[in-house]
Design a protein around this nucleic acid. Structure first.
Length: 440
RNA sequence: GUGGCUAUGGUGUAAUGGUAACACUAGAGCUUGUGGAGCUCUCGUCACGGGUUCGAUCCCCGUUAGCCACCCCA
């Protein structure tokens, strides 16, 4: 008994009907990014594991358990693992996100010699080994931008603007809000961590198990815990904003001023703490206005001023975001949007014998070469059946080539709405079809 | 990774411890070269594997997948 074939867990086929929605999101993003002067970059799906470990953080879930390893099938997993074990030449993985790759490319290709800031956009699939759920897949699409080489607060606002405008273009403006926070920089983050840790230490007994762990690894994340007990303790914690150093606070204030200037709807979100280690200062999310569910987060991003030098580049500030395409698709699907018609051909070809089939193929070549969309029931049986297909295809014009027509080198041009017909020479078909289509 | 719910033709649904009903879609046809209506027919080894039973699509277990909450993030 053959095993049933199916997609592997967490991966889905995007069928033509879905494709339309994805295309719509991609379009909105491309148009917006281009308007702001972003150029496209595409990086490989496969990178060395170490690239992400350093960027995202050794301790993060993404790095510790969510990456797909890639190896040659002929190598046993064991061999693949032990092959080049010094951290530099590590395992290969499917990328879980794109920022690290873009930064790698920035350094690798000496983009610091380009006019700064370098503004790059990308669209592509990412991979994370997670438990699948609606809006959460093991292969999912992200569309994002990175602005590298400028640290001014206006860039933070600009980054958000690009994301916002993309979603706005998709008709989602009314129901979304930007959540913003600042997590400090190299200078003040250690102190923030220490102060928060001190606070939570006092209530350590009441924290949930996960948070006990976070206390050691990343106390900031406790602010984000949804357990009631932890929440209560988090509420009494010192405000993140008050803990920021002078520079960070000024930067944050300026960022908000720019947002006000742009009239973007935002809310300060004390509890917003992004999971990726590389973020400094501004972090933000865009999500549904009144939806508690975290999956409603459509877009996330922030500033990462230290990442480039961590990779060995010169100190270079940067900022970016990524849109979760599937989540946006889910949302625009629920909205009543003008439904996109399936592709309808302009001409439907009908043939009635082998000779006619040859003629029909030639005609198809001529028409398609001239960008006229053609469909046909090449192997279908009776005229009746083929005409029915033609009718269903909604093509305005049918071309009928039977034995007689094949012999005479002619074809019947049939208008589908009123059934009127005309016989023309095959050499004149392009001309005739063009004229008739232009009258529609 | 933890807990829970679910799984019936291409799609959406129904019923039942004795091998499945309906709607839509698709294909074939309703006499030979003309469509849109109507009619007929076709398409499920009831996700997979095992168990209980005289007998399981229905009960039990496992697997796989989807969904929900957690976790994580986009």
């Amino acid at each position: 008994m053959p095993k049933k074939i199916q997609t592997v867990r967490g991966m889905t086929d995007i069928l033509p009907r879905q494709q339309v929605f994805f295309e719509r999101v991609f379009q909105a993003f491309r148009v917006t990014a281009r308007a702001f002067g972003f150029e496209q970059i595409e990086t490989p799906l496969v990178e060395e594991a170490g690239l992400f470990a350093r960027a995202i953080g050794e301790g993060s879930d993404i790095v510790t358990k969510q990456m797909f390893a890639v190896s040659r099938l002929a190598d046993s997993p064991r061999q693949a693992r032990t092959k080049g074990t010094d951290d530099e030449k590590g395992e290969l993985v499917l990328r879980p996100e794109a920022t690290a790759s873009v930064v790698r490319a920035y350094i690798e290709h000496g983009m610091h010699t380009w006019p700064q800031p370098v503004k790059l956009s990308y669209i592509g699939p990412m991979f994370r080994y997670e438990r699948p759920q609606a809006g959460r897949y093991r292969q999912f699409w992200q569309a994002g931008v990175e602005i590298i080489g400028e640290g001014d607060a206006s860039i933070d606002a600009l980054t958000m603007l690009v994301g916002w405008q993309t979603l706005e273009k998709l008709g989602l403006g009314e129901q979304l809000v930007i959540s913003v926070n600042s997590v400090g920089d190299k200078a003040c983050r250690p102190r923030i961590r220490k102060q928060l840790a001190a606070h939570f230490e006092k209530h350590a007994d009441a924290l949930c198990e996960d948070c006990q762990e976070r206390l050691k690894t990343n106390p900031l994340r406790i602010l984000d815990c949804k357990q009631d007990s932890c929440r209560k303790i988090a509420e009494s914690a010192p405000e993140l904003i008050d803990l920021l150093c002078e520079d960070c606070r000024a930067h944050f204030r300026m960022t908000l001023e720019y947002l006000d200037e742009l009239g973007l709807p935002y809310e300060l979100s004390q509890r917003l703490v992004r999971g990726l280690d590389y973020y400094t200062r501004t972090v933000f999310e865009i999500g549904a206005l009144n939806d508690e569910a975290r999956q409603s987060s459509l877009l996330g991003g922030g500033r990462y001023d230290t990442l480039i030098e961590e990779y060995g580049g010169r100190p270079t500030p940067a900022s970016g975001f990524a849109i979760g395409v599937e989540r946006v698709v889910e949302l625009i699907k629920t909205k009543k949007m003008p439904s996109v018609q399936p592709l309808t051909p302009q001409v439907f070809l009908i043939q009635l014998s082998e000779g006619a089939r040859k003629a029909a193929l030639r005609v198809a070549r001529t028409l398609t070469k001239n960008d006229i969309q053609v469909s046909s029931g090449m192997t279908k049986g009776s005229l009746k059946a083929q005409l029915r297909s033609a009718d269903r295809s909604k093509a305005p014009i049918s071309l009928i080539i039977g034995q007689r027509e094949a012999f005479d080198a002619t074809a019947i041009v049939r208008e589908m709405d009123d059934g009127s017909q005309e016989t023309v020479a095959q050499s004149a078909i392009l001309e005739t079809i063009r004229k008739r289509l232009s009258q529609k």
